[in-house]
Design a protein around this nucleic acid. Structure first.
Length: 230
DNA sequence: CCAGACGTTGTT
DNA sequence: GTCTGG
DNA sequence: CCAGACGTTGTT
DNA sequence: GTCTGG
């Protein structure tokens, strides 16, 4: 799955990769966690242009009475998107890209959870497939939120974890973002595990476990944690 | 009909 | 154990 | 995802 | 809002 990621690329790199107009450089983030604001790229209905904006990570369905439900909607399974009530409408009409330049997965063995950092071999920004939603509560409260779609891990990632985020081929961005497209049979093929050779991974310090620790040390390679001696 | 969920992951 | 917050 | 709380009453 | 479960 995907519960932490990084975004450190410059505004220029993001603008180039996602075919955006001028984008301000965001503060580099080495430990983006659920409930925090994340950048997304979307194409509003009735337009041909893309825009980058910030949204809360953890999708709050329109029908939610309590927006805290979003804390448990940080991922959506690609296999069941089309039938889940919480995601179905967003899958048809509100798809987005979630720019990232790496993500974390934890390998559990015995009592030890070893975090790994995973990034592109070519080491630049890429896109998770995502969905977004707009929620309005009583008294004018509103939340603009998003979620990251998951799929089976590819062979390389499977050494660490059984699931991984969907990473879209840039050639698929236009179709994925087009709000006029709502044919599940055209979109489903995009939601596959990315090729093994796109990604590389290395173990990192468990400092990344603390969602308030946001520093370059989150992604520096380290030795594997030692398991319990007992 | 009404009430209650609406989700994923991992672990057992 | 389960939920909330980051 | 992980970390940290998980509760009420009364008093200041 | 819509579906599932009772």
């Amino acid at each position: 799955m995907c519960g932490r990621f990084t975004l450190t690329s410059s505004g220029q790199e993001l603008a180039q990769r996602f075919e955006l107009g001028e984008v301000p450089t965001l503060a580099p983030r080495f430990n983006i966690a659920p409930s925090q604001d994340v950048a997304i790229v979307r194409q509003p209905a009735g337009t041909a242009g893309r825009l980058l904006e910030l949204r809360r990570w953890g999708l709050v369905p329109r029908f939610a009475r309590d927006p805290r439900i979003g804390n448990r909607m940080i991922n959506a399974r690609s296999e069941t998107l089309h039938e889940r009530r919480a995601f179905r409408d967003a899958f048809r009409k509100r798809r987005c890209l979630v720019p990232a330049d790496g993500f974390f997965e934890w390998r559990r063995r015995g009592g030890v959870a070893q975090p790994y950092y995973i990034r592109r071999v070519s080491n630049g920004p890429f896109a998770f497939a995502g969905l977004y939603e707009h929620w309005e509560g009583p008294e004018g409260a509103c939340v603009d939120s998003c979620t990251v779609i998951t799929t089976d891990a590819n062979a390389r990632i499977r050494a660490v974890h059984e699931r991984m985020p969907v990473i879209l081929d840039p050639a698929a961005f236009a179709l994925w973002l087009d709000p006029a497209v709502d044919a599940a049979e055209r979109l489903a093929p995009l939601l596959a595990p990315c090729p093994d050779d796109w990604l590389e991974l290395h173990p990192v310090s468990p400092r990344v476990n603390d969602p308030t620790w946001d520093a370059p040390s989150c992604i520096e390679p380290t030795a594997e944690l030692q398991g319990s001696l007992f």
